[in-house]
């Protein structure tokens, strides 16, 4: 009886977490305009999703922004972590603390403060995309720093020394000895940077050009608009994203499971 209760509780929580998104997926394959109205099977939503230039540009823009800001974050965060790791304790303290500000701060406040500084004080134009890219980098780079730092601590320092003793130039030793050892941290930082950027609404809304939308800002506007064709096409989008995430999470964890076994 007790076990039944356990299973039931887990099922209730899972149902709560998945029911809306699964229901939406089912309805995305129909021509109904709101849930609860039963109607026929249709692929119109998917057709709109993949053919509407507005939706296509928005999706491509979202991913381009995520990749650009993640690449900048990885370069800045990794070099920053290596630099801070070998700096005097005061400098490292400074970097650690400043790095923590965007992590604990509310995204609304981060977005607002960047907007005030870059656009109101420095008079930068939102249309240049620079505030947007800086904003997303501020959001992601601390997490790259935080995922690289523990790898640096675990690293075997003598390998770097050995490489230098054997005549390697410092930058060669850095690229061939240090970077490979901290690569798992860099990779997880990169993945995290991508997901943070894709999920962000608050920083985007304060720093984006008026004509540019990411998935988040687009969806929020669409829920208020009256365009049902766009609204239901977004159901198809959330189904596609749900499937991609599920597959990605599954493979990442199968991969991670194998890695652990090998160690």
């Amino acid at each position: 009886m007790k076990r039944m209760g356990y299973v039931l509780w887990l099922l209730i929580v899972l149902l709560f977490l998945y029911m809306p998104i699964l229901m939406l997926s089912v309805y995305s394959f129909t021509d109904s305009e709101s849930m609860g109205i039963i109607s026929g099977f249709s692929l119109d939503n998917y057709r709109t999703l993949f053919t509407s230039p507005e939706l296509r540009d928005m999706i491509i823009g979202t991913f381009a922004l995520a990749i650009v800001s993640a690449v900048i974050s990885v370069i800045l965060g990794t070099s920053g972590a290596i630099g801070a790791f070998y700096s005097k304790s005061g400098t490292k303290m400074f970097a650690d603390s400043a790095n923590q500000i965007p992590v604990v701060n509310a995204d609304v406040v981060t977005g607002f403060s960047i907007c005030i500084f870059l656009i109101v004080v420095l008079n930068m134009k939102k249309e240049t995309f620079i505030p947007l890219i800086i904003g997303h980098t501020v959001l992601s780079v601390p997490f790259v720093y935080l995922s690289v730092m523990p790898k640096l601590k675990q690293m075997d320092e003598s390998l770097y020394e050995a490489a230098l003793d054997m005549g390697a130039k410092p930058h060669a030793a850095l690229m061939k000895v240090i970077i490979p050892q901290i690569a798992p941290g860099i990779l997880s930082g990169f993945v995290m940077a991508i997901t943070l950027s894709l999920d962000d609404y608050f920083i985007t809304t304060y720093t984006k050009p008026a004509t540019f939308d990411t998935i988040s800002t687009y969806v929020v506007n669409a829920t208020k608009g009256a365009q049902t064709e766009i609204k239901t096409a977004l159901w198809a989008l959330s189904t596609v994203i749900f499937v991609i995430i599920t597959i990605a999470v599954f493979f990442m964890n199968v991969g991670a499971g194998k890695e652990k076994k090998n160690v």
């Binding site: 965060g77 920053g80 972590a81 630099g83 500000i101 981060t110 403060s113 500084f117 780079v141």
Partner: peptide
């Protein structure tokens, strides 16, 4: 290696600390 941190320090000062001071 220590100098590698300089770009990130500048980034932190300009885009993390400065905005907070400005608000």
């Amino acid at each position: 290696r220590r100098y590698l941190g300089i770009p990130y320090m500048i980034f932190l000062i300009f885009f993390v600390i400065a905005p907070v001071l400005v608000i």
